[in-house]
């Protein structure tokens, strides 16, 4: 036996101390991380950026092989797929015609009423690859390979071709972390497409997130389509999420984006509506009160300002 003397005892004691120190350090990191996620934001984003690049290159051969297998499958099903697509195109041609007619009608109404009820959903979207998807026991997140450089910001919605996937919780220069809808920490304000009932969609680490804070009068029947309500001021209104399913008398949502494997996603940059406190109006002075002499009446803003200046009635 080698190292059974005092040197061995000393090393053994040192190793115990190192273990205790590292364990405590981990605990401190963990508590700081779950208590205030901003504490390691900078360094974490940098490492994630490097990680995203590394994983993009490392997964190239894996994705190449997967593509080869998928291509073989597609070729095998090409004929039946072609038939199905032809049927879908003929069905969608009719739908498109109806959509165009409705769109025209809506724009006419908007012109008559002088309002804009256009969709909140941004026109531009940023394509990204989910380089790493974490379906682990503790968190349900994904790492995508776009960041601030490409115009992504915190809170942006992330979509797959089927529906809402999650939203951005951390942004780096060229990578971002997406919190999936099923994660325990996910909360999204939602609306029923059929009757406009509101609820909060809460992730619970299961496949189907739960609908909570439902009004007793609201009807959420199975099969009703759920989409974002925009009430949270973070996500735009109208992003499709899924359909209602009832499990043990608990209303849950079967996500449209529940495809087993997600590779490409779209980030929807959205400018949320700021509160008056966050976006205060410039202060006005008495000189700025405009009297509309031509009309012989005060402008609404002037009238309010002048009313405010008058002493209250006793």
């Amino acid at each position: 036996m080698i190292g059974r003397g005092s040197g061995f005892q000393k090393r053994r004691r040192n190793s115990r101390l190192v273990f205790i120190a590292l364990f405590l350090l981990s605990a401190v990191f963990y508590l700081a991380s779950i208590g205030n996620d901003e504490s390691f934001k900078g360094s974490r984003s940098n490492i994630e950026g490097v990680g995203a690049k590394l994983l993009t290159y490392l997964t190239l051969p894996v994705r190449g092989f997967e593509k080869l297998v998928a291509d073989a499958g597609n070729r095998w099903n090409a004929h039946s797929e072609n038939e199905r697509l032809k049927e879908e195109v003929s069905r969608l041609s009719d739908t498109e015609a109806r959509l165009n007619a409705l769109s025209f009608k809506l724009s006419r109404f908007e012109t008559i009423l002088n309002v804009d009820v256009g969709s909140d959903i941004p026109e531009t979207k940023i394509a990204a690859r989910a380089v790493s998807e974490n379906d682990g026991p503790f968190a349900k997140t994904a790492l995508i390979n776009v960041g601030v450089k490409q115009g992504v910001s915190k809170g942006d919605a992330v979509m797959t071709i089927d529906g809402l996937y999650g939203h951005i919780i951390r942004v780096g220069n060229s990578s971002s972390r997406v919190l999936k809808l099923v994660d325990l920490n996910s909360r999204v304000a939602v609306i029923s497409k059929s009757n406009g009932a509101r609820a909060i969609l809460i992730g619970d680490n299961s496949q189907f997130p739960t609908l909570s804070y439902i009004s007793s009068q609201a009807e959420w029947e199975d099969g009703v389509t759920v989409m974002t309500s925009g009430d949270d001021g973070v996500l735009p209104m109208g992003l499709p999420i899924g359909i209602v399913v009832t499990e043990n008398e608990i209303r849950k949502v079967k996500l449209f984006a529940d495809r087993n494997f997600v590779d490409w996603v779209w980030v929807y940059p959205y400018e949320p509506i700021n509160t008056p406190e966050e976006d205060p109006a410039p202060e006005t002075t008495d000189d700025e009160i405009v009297i509309d002499d031509a009309a012989g009446a005060e402008s609404p803003s002037a009238s309010i300002e002048e009313d405010a200046l008058e002493p209250p009635l006793q």
Binding site: R11, L25, F40, R44, E48, A142
Partner: peptide
């Protein structure tokens, strides 16, 4: 060597936390 082993495990676990987006320090614990 236990000391090097502890440091190796600690650092690589932190990397796993970052790559998976888990709370930092969770996997070392």
């Amino acid at each position: 060597d236990p000391v090097i082993s502890y440091f190796g495990i600690f650092v690589t676990s932190l990397i796993l936390d970052v790559l998976l987006g888990d709370p930092l320090g969770g996997w070392p614990l």
